[in-house]
Write a protein that binds this DNA or RNA. Structure first.
Length: 466
DNA sequence: CTATGGCACGGATT
DNA sequence: AATCCGTGCCATAG
């Protein structure tokens, strides 16, 4: 572990703690801004360039083999850690300017990249930033909260331009993206179907005119308004629930959460990536904790020397710079260290979850980990908040999902419902779960169902599709 | 009468 | 101290 220079003998100050805490909450993107600002403001800080690994062309600061390319000597340990300053990932703003060949379409990419790749050919150069801005402002469900006018103003674009780009985005792969709500999302998805199917026009009418009734499942009123039979309405409802998705981003980010969840987090580029080494399915896991910027920070030694030589009224100011720089570097290191230890524990204890899916998540609390590492609980809380992880299968999930106590049970419920012959009531699901040794209340099953958007038994279709 | 969803309470977690 | 989560109770829809 790197020790920060001489001054570090001084005990930790409250300022030190406060700054470490505040750095810990920041996601990489936010930290990046902060670091750049600090670098700009403080002449005592310097950024040292990373060495580049000759084989994979990725940054590498320590000596010895690059953990991404070379196999570990003893494959005893299936997990290889890449210390934060060893790795970078281009920030989304740069991705679009990058050579597109850099980003293989092989693994399912981050949503932003995924969308951008599809629309890039239809995009005027001027519209690129606009498209980025729009994608960046999508919420967790893939909706656009701000009206087009606001976006036009914020990006200094014309309204027509904004609408054109939104139109593009909403008709590529996760269809219905960037619409204003579930209703608009459904309509956009409907555009992708051919009008030959007689159900389409009726579906469009229903979503357009009788959306409220649709939500209440008041099929009779709909039938009246649409001047058709109730059975027709049912067929169309069936069609809608099978082919359309009111929350476009959910299909992308594995299992979604409630629409009313106002978490402003959008998981664009992950803060941490867990992948198989060399894309080898059976290869060891590599955990990369991305640093905010390429290179690593340290106190500028030239500045230190200059200070010791010079004297005069500037000295006070310079000393302060030096102290701040030293503190800043130390905080960053502390942050990195905490993140690394946290990930060590998570990856080794939740390997099954990472490799095999939600069901294998073993419930654990932040408090336990805090004790294990020997830091305060709130430190772990901060470290976990606002961060996202890319899993080997390409899903990007919030780091906090590792602490979701109900995830594995919800996954089982999903499976039970999928394999049910005839819709099971919540009580029956409780019994099914008991067979697996899971004891929860009926009311809880109901809650989990609604979290995952599973309809109540009476509204679910029988297995055979009529 | 049964299955569900809303409200709210208490205990755990952060 | 604030928030989250599982659950019980009760009203209501089917």
């Amino acid at each position: 572990m790197l020790q920060v220079q001489d001054q570090s003998l001084r005990p930790l100050t409250t300022a030190h703690l406060a700054q470490t805490m505040s750095l810990l909450v920041l996601s990489n993107m936010d930290l990046r801004d902060k670091v750049l600002a600090e670098l700009n403001r403080n002449p005592a800080l310097e950024l040292v360039e990373d060495r580049i690994c000759p084989t994979c062309q990725k940054p590498l600061t320590h000596n010895g083999p690059c953990p991404r390319c070379s196999l570990p000597k003893n494959d005893e340990s299936p997990i290889v850690f890449v210390s934060p300053r060893d790795s970078i990932r281009p920030m989304p703003r740069q991705i679009i300017d990058d050579d597109p060949a850099d980003h293989e379409p092989a693994a399912p990419e981050d949503l932003a990249i995924h969308v951008l790749q599809q629309i890039s050919s239809d995009l005027e150069v001027d519209d690129r930033n606009l498209a980025l801005f729009i994608i960046a402002s999508l919420d967790e469900d893939g909706f656009l909260q701000d009206p087009a006018v606001v976006i036009a103003r914020a990006t200094r674009s014309s309204l027509a331009q904004v609408n054109r780009v939104i139109g593009l985005i909403s008709h590529v792969d996760p269809p219905g993206l960037a619409s204003q709500g579930p209703r608009e999302a459904l309509l956009a998805q409907l555009d992708l179907f051919t009008n030959e199917d007689p159900r389409i026009p009726l579906a469009r009418f229903m979503i357009n005119q009788t959306f409220k009734e649709l939500g209440r499942r008041d099929y009779e009123t709909i039938a009246e308004l649409a001047e058709c039979s109730a059975s027709q309405v049912r067929r169309v409802v069936n069609f809608i629930s099978e082919n359309l998705n009111p929350y476009p981003a959910r299909s992308f980010w594995s299992s979604g959460r409630g629409p009313q969840n106002g978490d402003p987090n959008v998981y664009h580029s992950p803060d941490i990536q867990i992948s198989h080494q060399a894309n080898n399915e059976n290869g060891p896991l590599v955990v990369e904790i991305f640093s905010a910027i390429s290179g690593w920070l340290r106190v500028n030694q030239a500045f230190r020397k200059a200070l010791s030589r010079s004297s005069g009224e500037k000295t006070d100011e310079w000393t302060e710079h030096l102290e701040k720089a030293s503190l800043f570097v130390k905080c960053i290191q502390q942050r990195n260290n905490t993140m690394r230890r946290l990930m060590e524990i998570l990856v080794s204890s939740q390997k099954e979850f990472i490799l095999s899916g939600d069901r294998y998540l073993i419930p654990m609390t932040r408090a336990t980990i805090a004790k294990e590492i020997g830091v305060h609980e709130s430190t772990i809380s901060r470290a976990v908040a606002h961060k996202s992880v890319a899993l080997p299968d390409g899903r990007i999930i919030p780091l906090s999902r590792f602490f979701d106590r109900s995830l594995s049970v919800r996954d089982r419920i999903k499976e039970i419902v999928e394999n049910e012959g005839k819709p099971l009531t919540d009580d029956q699901i409780v019994l099914e779960l008991e067979k697996d040794g899971i004891k929860i209340a009926r009311r809880t099953v109901a809650k989990y169902r609604s979290m995952d958007g599973i309809l109540p038994a009476r509204l679910r279709l029988s297995r055979k599709n009529g």
